[in-house]
Each structure stands twice: as structure tokens, then as C-alpha cells.
Amino acid sequence: MTVTPMHFVIFAAVLFAIGAAGVLLRRSGISILLGIELMLNAANLALVAFGRMHGTLDAQVFVFFVMAVAAAEVAVGLALLVAIFRKLHSIDVDRLNVLRW
């Protein structure tokens, strides 16, 4: 068996599906953020694999930028979670229904 970049794309698709299922099924805010991280990583892996198919380095630069934006996203997301926890004493997203009614 020879490993082609297509195998990595399929691996990325499986990781993305697992992350999406985590985001949809979990109720703890931290687990939802972890699922988002997993999906971001799967997208990055697919980008690098596609870049490898085309023999260019631009995809790797994009992935570098995505990593930086992901770091910013995590900092803000976790700060939001801490603020929510201070107010509600829980990070269960089902209890975040103040704006719903």
C-alpha cells in the first residue's frame, strides 16, 4: 500500500466528523470548544494534503495563519467560559438561555 495525500484527506474527514459530532452532542462548554479545535485541525490537515497534491507551499502558510487565529479564538472562548461560569456557576450550555425568550 502506498500512502497518497488522498489518504490524509480521508483521515481529515473522519477527524472532522468526530469533532462535529462532539460539538453537536456534548453539553459542556469546554467539550464544545475542544470539538471546534478538532474540526479546525482536520481542516488544516486537509489543506496541507491538498497543498501536497499541487506541490505548492501556500497551503502551509494558510495553515500557519489558521493556527494563529485558532489561538486567538481559544483565548476569547475560554475567557467567555470563565465569565459565564462566574455568573451561572455552570458551563452547561443548556442553561445559557437568557437571550432565548
Partner: peptide
């Protein structure tokens, strides 16, 4: 490791430094 297999050595190192080293420690 997949990045390394795909020939993206710099990204493999950055992935370990940024994700495992910084983001998940924050988590």
C-alpha cells in the same frame, strides 16, 4: 505526525508548540 509525513516539517513543529504546548495547556 501526519504533517511530517506530508513533508511539512515546520508545521509539524509549530503544531506541537502551539497546540499541544500552548492551547491545550490553556484548556
Amino acid at each position: 505526525a501526519s504533517y511530517a509525513l506530508l513533508g511539512a516539517e515546520f508545521l509539524a513543529a509549530a503544531q506541537i508548540l502551539i497546540y499541544a504546548g500552548a492551547i491545550l495547556v490553556l484548556f
